[in-house]
Design a protein around this nucleic acid. Sequence first.
DNA 1: GCGACAG
DNA 2: ATCTTGTCGC
Length: 224
Amino acid sequence: MKIQLSHPWPETAAEAEAVQDALRAGLDLAGPGPARPATVAGVDVAYRGDRLAAAVVVLDAATHRIVEQVAVAGRTAFAYVPGLLAFRELPSLVEALERLTAVPDLIVCDGYGLAHPRRFGLACHLGVLTGLPTVGVGKTAFVGSHREPGHRRGDWSELLLDGDVVGRVLRTQDGVKPVFVSVGHRIDLDTACRHVLALSPRYRLPETTRAADRLSRAALRAAS
DNA sequence: GCGACAG
DNA sequence: ATCTTGTCGC
């Protein structure tokens, strides 16, 4: 899979925001998204100083067994700025995705999609760049307001931003802190939450996220 | 004006 | 994200 990053790569926050505004035109939020993805990819990045390691792990959607995995070591190329996380992680993540031998049916990202101050988080970037359906799963609140969802697995509440529903606060395990789900590209919120829940049979975070997190940390250790 | 702020 | 001890629970 060949992926074209924006050229030139933004240097400043203002340039990065301009890139987001331009890419947002490519968002597809019309269809319901994949009902039965055969494979789902999880992506994550680990850091240590200015070193980083990006990982993509493709799982069989039904069994959650690892089908393929790729890790890429690199250096931090953009400072962390809330709202511009994508520019920090995208270069290495894209490189890892390009090395996959098979294109996954869905990508689950660490972070947010539409639930973003400019309505274009990391999951939206990855969706527009790859053309694949993407979902954002955040571990902590970032933008928007919400009521506390019920305490049972599957309970959820709306994430609201300026009067719009931009995501859901979803309980993936009984009595465990909820996750923040938002759509990235080519999928609807209902379908996104359904897949996140199916990918989290035992732990708070989706198996895709857990697998990518482990691989990125291991790759970071191996590289440094 | 001040603080908060994905990973 | 990362820096970190002990501690509760299966």
